[in-house]
């Protein structure tokens, strides 16, 4: 069992934190930045007939959230196998 190899576990944890940072960065970008902060600027464009900023707040961010969870699960499953700590 490689679970006691501390150095490996630290590397595992570091990669885990990196994934979370990137994914939560996207999470922040689509909801807070695109849906709230720059929503008026984005509304100048349209997507499928809707103002882009409005779309981000009401559909785009939600779809992205679901995708983020899927990607996180996929990445972590791969990481668990790489460090041999899968269940």
């Amino acid at each position: 069992m490689s679970i006691h190899a501390t150095k490996e576990l630290q590397a595992y944890w570091k990669e885990n934190l990196f994934y979370i940072a990137v994914l939560l960065g996207i999470w922040f970008l689509v909801s807070y930045v695109c849906g709230i902060l720059i929503v008026n600027q984005l509304d100048a464009y349209t997507i499928g007939g809707f103002p882009l900023g409005f779309w981000f707040a009401n559909q785009g961010s939600l779809v992205t959230f679901v995708v983020l969870i899927w990607v996180y699960v996929w990445l972590m499953d791969r990481l668990d196998i790489k460090y041999n700590v899968q269940q």
Binding site: I20, L24, W27, G35, A57, S61, L62, I69
Partner: peptide, 24 residues
């Protein structure tokens, strides 16, 4: 109206936090 989007994003965005920071 549009202001309701905050609830929408907060409500669903919380699931991402739960899944990444608590679930595992």
């Amino acid at each position: 109206g549009r202001d309701g989007s905050y609830y929408l994003m907060g409500w669903t965005g919380g699931y991402v936090l739960l899944a990444m920071l608590f679930g595992p």
